[in-house]
């Protein structure tokens, strides 16, 4: 993961690097270990040698946290209304359609209800593979509905984040999703039901600066990039190299912004344990 290797491929490549491979064998980007797909799956998509956490989608994370077959998804087909008819080098409409085809998702977040060791929860999980997990109207509205559900049914809420930030192609409306999700969370706080925020690699920008940092308990996955500004922007601003480990989970834990860093295989037990204390 050195700087020069990344620049050789261009910026977009890094977001693809750790996604789940199609073949039978895959190589760990961190240590070079060749891992069999079955083995990887058994290890919750982490490297058995160096503990690197691969980026996974919502489907995999639901399996990490929830009791088997307990997930009931809501608003599955909600999609963006393209309010600005946004065009850059490509139409936003085409961008979302392509992403839908490629990922078989409708936007960058899924939500629903389920159980963790028989405890009912409302759960929302982000997908980084859908336009960089960016937050537009759909992510905001789904989070708002998840919070409403948790609020009305007095059920704990869990959100798993992975996002590059707010979605540019919906302009100021994307920015307002930060306000919307944060405002909604005040209602859940009023009924004293816990909200656990789980941050995975990467969680940056508008998502970090809203609901992701508002958990009653905030958990990071090992070595996940978590921050407001991206490392590239900070490096340009200060004109210096960034210290090793900067903006990683362990760094945030050290500076007091995470409650804990938890290995993916222990995530379900940890969340359950917190819920038994607070729910």
């Amino acid at each position: 993961m050195s700087w020069f290797r990344r620049s050789k491929e261009n910026i977009a490549a890094e977001t693809q690097k750790k996604e789940i491979p199609d073949g039978l064998w895959t190589k760990c980007d961190a240590c070079g270990e060749i891992i069999h797909k079955k083995e990887l799956q058994k290890n919750f998509f982490t490297c058995s040698k160096c503990n690197a956490h691969f980026r996974v989608g919502s489907e995999e994370y639901l399996a990490v946290l929830l009791d088997e077959d307990s997930f009931k998804e809501s608003d599955k087909k909600m999609r963006s209304g393209d309010p600005l008819k946004f065009v850059d080098t490509k139409k936003y409409r085409d961008r979302t359609n392509d992403a839908i085809k490629k990922t078989r998702l409708y936007d960058a977040l899924r939500w629903g209800t389920g159980t963790i060791k028989d405890l009912p929860v409302v759960l929302a999980v982000m997908d980084f593979s859908f336009i960089g997990g960016s937050m537009g109207s759909v992510v905001g509205e789904k989070i708002a509905r998840a919070v409403d559900k948790a609020w009305k049914t007095k059920t704990p809420l869990i959100i798993v984040s992975s996002s590059g930030g707010a979605r540019m192609m919906e302009g100021a409306l994307s920015l307002m999703q930060m306000a919307k999700t944060s405002a909604k969370l005040t209602r859940l706080a009023d009924v004293r039901k816990p909200y656990i925020s789980i941050l995975t690699d990467p969680t940056t920008g508008g998502v970090t600066a809203s609901f992701a940092m508002l958990g009653d308990v905030i958990i990071g996955e090992p070595n996940a990039l978590i921050g407001f500004a991206g490392p590239r922007v900070i490096k340009q601003t200060i004109g210096k190299d960034l210290p090793p480990g900067f903006q990683r989970s362990e760094f945030l834990l050290e500076h007091g912004f995470l409650d804990m860093v938890v290995h993916r295989r222990d995530m379900r037990d940890t969340v359950h344990s917190i819920l038994t204390h607070l729910a």
Partner: peptide, 26 residues
């Protein structure tokens, strides 16, 4: 924009903004 600096991140720029959104809402 909020300052994109090293110390700003260390002191929780994201948390500070998120907290304001939450507290201002109520």
């Amino acid at each position: 924009g909020a300052f994109p600096g090293l110390e700003a991140e260390e002191r929780g720029q994201a948390e500070a903004i998120a907290r304001n959104l939450f507290e201002m809402a109520r």
